[in-house]
Amino acid sequence: MNRLEVKKTYKLYIGGKFPRSESGRVQTLTDKKGEVIANVAKASKKDLRNTVVATRKAQLGWAASSAYLKGQILYRLAEMLEGRKAQFISSLIRSGKTQKRATAEVEKSIDTLVYFAGWSDKFQAVYSSVNPVSSPHYNFSAPVATGVVGIVLDDSSTLLDLISQMAPIIVGGNTALIIVPGSLAIAAMELAEVIHTSDVPAGVINILTGELGDMVPTLAGHMDVNSISVSTDDTELKKTVRLLGAENVKRVVFVDQKKSALGPYPILDFQEIKTTWHPVG
């Protein structure tokens, strides 16, 4: 006798919790044959607003934690993902990828986390400077986190894209609010479970699934979001983000997913430079 499968409900990931959308809306995902895979939550504007609050609340504490700790936490995330590698591969296969590609993507995702974990206490050294000013002052510049960063992924984005954007943003002391379309929802929420069981503090990474059209304008216009990373070819959407983002001088970064996401530069895109002066004498 066939065992009756237990279907999973995919919710949102906000402030270290997995709530349903306050709107009660869901999006039904189907496979190629039209069979229902799952219902994923469709986050509302209000969900987004609540998520910004949670993301902001976590930011100062996360930024203040030691670089070593951030590195360890990202590495822990990689460890957890490695442990659930099979699940992620099969999930990607279910979404239509070949075994080979799915495996490569999951492995690269894990390696990307390890890669950025290693940057946690190094990018500052590479991009800081002690500035030889002409007056009797000790003067130095160092990167500091921009703050709350929104990450927008579109239908072309993969799990690897999500991780490639999230990791450099987080490792630099920012907290992230990630918006993913339905197509990426299952992978993203499975990742949320991994994040939840690793040592990432609540609110440091938050994931909302749903319609970009619902959420992106609210995110872009939100006055308590400092920066947005956007991966899309949709020029109208890009323009909208820039226009609304202007209201609080948001740092808007368009990420080309086809290019390598490695190196320190993806971290620096979400850093400010702070310069400190002090007299010597």
Partner: peptide, 26 residues
């Protein structure tokens, strides 16, 4: 903030980066 002057104020130098956070610039 982007520039912090400790025990001094309004010192400038070409070798010293200058730029703001939040609505003070990019």
């Amino acid at each position: 903030a982007g520039i912090m002057w400790a025990n001094t104020y309004n010192a400038f130098d070409p070798a010293s980066p200058f730029g703001g956070f939040k609505e003070s610039g990019i």
